[in-house]
């Protein structure tokens, strides 16, 4: 007899393996998506080089490029995690397999852990490729950057985005037809208030207040300090702990809300409809 833990671990790994197979089978789409993401990052980063000409003033363009590069990379990483997790239901609705997966004898934590493990691994790899291309093209010097610290900040920031992603994943569960599209609202709001491409100080007071509650604000701040200023890992702690706290709050809340939404879907028959 296998133990309950082994059962749940195997079930968790099922999602990692399945997603890897899907990425392999949709390889052409993955290439298109990668090309789009690289082009997107580069076009935002070129604004840094163009600012001197646009403003007519002397500006440290290289610094500005790196500032924007960090914004695009961190944002790509966090939003990829978010979308992979919210896709936990959307993908299965699309394929029509949702009832089979939700009928399996597994805890929702097991389910989410598998999807999350894949999301983090995929997003790290994807972001690393974009970073490599950007560094090469802009000839960015990372010799003084604290890459270990940067990775630590991004990984700790992942936790909060996992929680937000789980909350977002209830939308396709509750709204079979348009739920997947609704998740874009969450990510757009975070993009606005987190200081991805500008310091949060430029935001009006209300939005600036909201930025305090966005974990992305701290991830971006910590990543910039690690990459641009080369701050040692210990000094990155003020950017790390808020994201850990946010993760510790958001993940249990996400799982709880997901449980409620699943119950609602089972009560109203929304699992069956493939939107």
């Amino acid at each position: 007899m296998i133990s309950a833990t082994t059962r749940q671990l195997r079930a968790s790994y099922a999602f990692v393996e399945r997603n890897a197979h899907l990425v392999k089978r949709y390889w052409s789409w993955e290439l298109v998506w990668l090309a789009y993401s690289i082009a997107n990052s580069l076009s935002v980063s070129y604004i840094g080089l163009g600012m001197e000409q646009i403003s007519g003033q002397e500006i440290d363009g290289r610094y500005l490029v790196l500032y924007l590069v960090v914004g695009t990379l961190v944002w790509r990483y966090l939003s990829l995690i978010f979308y992979w997790i919210t896709d936990v239901i959307g993908l299965e609705r699309w394929e029509g397999t949702i009832e089979y997966t939700l009928m399996a004898p597994i805890h929702r934590l097991t389910h989410m852990a598998g999807q999350t493990a894949f999301a983090v691994a995929y997003s790290l790899l994807f972001t690393a490729i974009i970073l490599a291309v950007t560094v090469k093209l802009f000839q960015i010097d990372l010799t003084n950057a604290n890459l270990f610290g940067m990775t630590l900040v991004m990984l700790s920031g992942s936790l909060s985005f996992i929680g937000i992603g789980i909350v977002g994943s209830i939308l396709p569960l509750l709204f079979p037809e348009r739920g997947a599209q609704m998740t874009h609202v969450i990510i757009a709001m975070l993009l606005l208030v987190s200081g991805v491409y500008y310091p949060v100080a430029v935001l009006p007071p209300t939005l600036r207040m909201l930025s305090v509650f966005s974990p992305a604000t701290y991830v971006l701040d910590g990543t910039r300090k690690a990459l641009l200023d080369g701050l040692p890992t210990a000094q990155l702690w003020p950017s790390i702990w808020p994201t850990l706290v946010a993760g510790a709050i958001a993940i249990p809340i996400g799982l709880w809300v997901f449980g409620l939404a699943e119950r609602y879907a089972k009560r109203t028959g929304k699992l069956h409809r493939n939107g």
Partner: peptide, 13 residues
């Protein structure tokens, strides 16, 4: 691939 996914969900190796 589909069946292995299903089997793993039920705890099979």
């Amino acid at each position: 691939e589909n069946l292995i996914f299903g089997a793993r969900l039920y705890g099979l190796s």
